[in-house]
Design a binder for these strands. Structure first.
Lengths: 249, 249
DNA sequence: GTGTTATACTGGTCATACCAGTTTTAAGTG
DNA sequence: CACTTAAAACTGGTATGACCAGTATAACAC
């Protein structure tokens, strides 16, 4: 009965999953739907666990299991003393997490990740050039300035990278890109830091400078609305990364 | 203290999240890491809850909270009588869930998803044309045949779609594509079925036929190794979908 | 052999209890 | 009356121990 194993053809969608048996699951769904339908808005508080005992007619452990699920799914946050769990604002953090999980567990090679990332961000950069607003440009300008100031600190430099790629995606006005690209960048952060740590200080500086140069090239293309230029520059940037990756291995 | 709100620049990466306070959370992380590092492989069973009591030196409710989190994150599955939770194979279910959640909360629009998907699969189709093996071609051929046989059953037709897109990604030899494309396709399944249900039988048939035609065009381009043709055909296919989407709304 | 039945286990749930914090309330103070 | 302070009434986190309805297994009968 390992329906889960088969990469599998389809029949799945004809049958819908059998009704959930666990009470905690039912409670989870009930509250999740309330949030999804907007009847519980961000900032609202759930009743206290002991109150929910009466509402759901279930014991506290059962209710707590539901709360843990909601929390894990990023819908709520629970703070000890403070009364009741708080409904969180829509937030990509959980999506980002499960994306990272899926990628790290799916035995995905760094090279495949880099390849996909290159394609994804190349397209995104093109969109960004066409859709960036004045605000987007300013935000990127500010960030680039900050990055320029920390070229000699490669850890700092690398840690700012996801933000840069995130801002580009934001300018592209596509939330999926924002989440994905930032996650891709973050996933590669660990590798980059390890890679740079092995270099001599002079080489480190040389590398961060080279990367910064590329960032500026990309930014300039986006700023002047040059979609093809932005795409090309981004592709170059990420292909360089991928090449570095393959040489390192 | 709503660090969670700020779309945010970076400082995040300098500080690491404060040590986890809840025991269930720690247990969750411990088991998750075991799975991620491959020390617990798909199919393996976790010890029974009562055994874990001794291993973790924590009470059963606490351990069960951790299990619910693992389950929700898609790492394990628990079946009542059967001994111990089972570690699931790498599986995009959790990614799919979080994407679906993001969609339902309105953080991501269907249109943005469709746009990103178009870009992603366009590139993937091109790769597939260059890298498909004989096996890939045969698998796709078999599937297309099956799909042709169910043109008059739109539910069946739609339910086979993710497999088709998954096979293309598989032929592209990029695991990231496989996960994403199949997920995208699944997410749109619900929409498609609802859309088709509203049509008259004749229109339904017309639509499934048109889609099938596109699938064949894509397949033929991939089969003859025509990357540009495959990309173009895929783009056309998905742009048609996106257009349909915008008209429907 | 095969078929059947106990028995020992499993997960799902409940009730109750305790602790360490926080909030609220009430008391006391100026 | 306003202000501080201390007690009471919460809150979430955790632990016990119990019960049930199922499943797996091993002992038993044939």
């Amino acid at each position: 009965m390992n329906r889960v194993d088969t990469p599998s053809l389809s029949r799945e969608s004809l049958f819908r999953p059998v009704e959930t048996k666990r009470a905690s699951e039912a409670i989870f769904e009930q509250i999740r739907d309330l949030i999804a339908r907007g009847e519980l808005k961000p900032g609202d508080r759930l009743p206290s666990e002991r109150n929910m005992i009466e509402m759901f007619q279930r014991s506290r452990p059962t209710i707590r299991e539901a709360l843990r699920m909601l929390e894990r799914a990023g819908y709520i946050r629970t703070v000890p003393g403070s009364n009741g769990a708080v409904v969180l604002p829509p937030n990509d953090k959980n999506l980002e997490n499960s994306l990272a999980d899926a990628l790290s567990i799916g035995h995905i090679s760094l090279d495949q990740l880099a390849e996909y990332r290159t394609a994804s961000e190349t397209v995104t950069a093109g969109w960004a050039a066409l859709r960036r607003t004045e605000d987007d440009i300013q935000a990127m300008e500010r960030l680039l300035e900050r990055m320029e100031g920390s070229l000699d600190d490669y850890e700092q430099s690398v840690s700012l990278d996801p933000d840069f790629h995130g801002l580009i995606a934001q300018a592209a006005k596509n939330t999926v890109s924002v989440i994905f690209n930032r996650t891709f960048s973050r996933l590669n952060q660990g590798y980059m830091i390890g890679r740079l740590a092995k270099l001599a200080p002079a080489e480190q500086l040389e590398m961060t400078q080279r990367v910064h140069q590329m960032h500026e090239t990309i930014f300039n293309a986006i700023k002047r609305g040059d979609a093809e230029g932005a795409s090309a520059a981004m592709r170059l940037h990420l292909m360089a990364f991928r090449e570095d990756l393959s040489q390192d291995a």
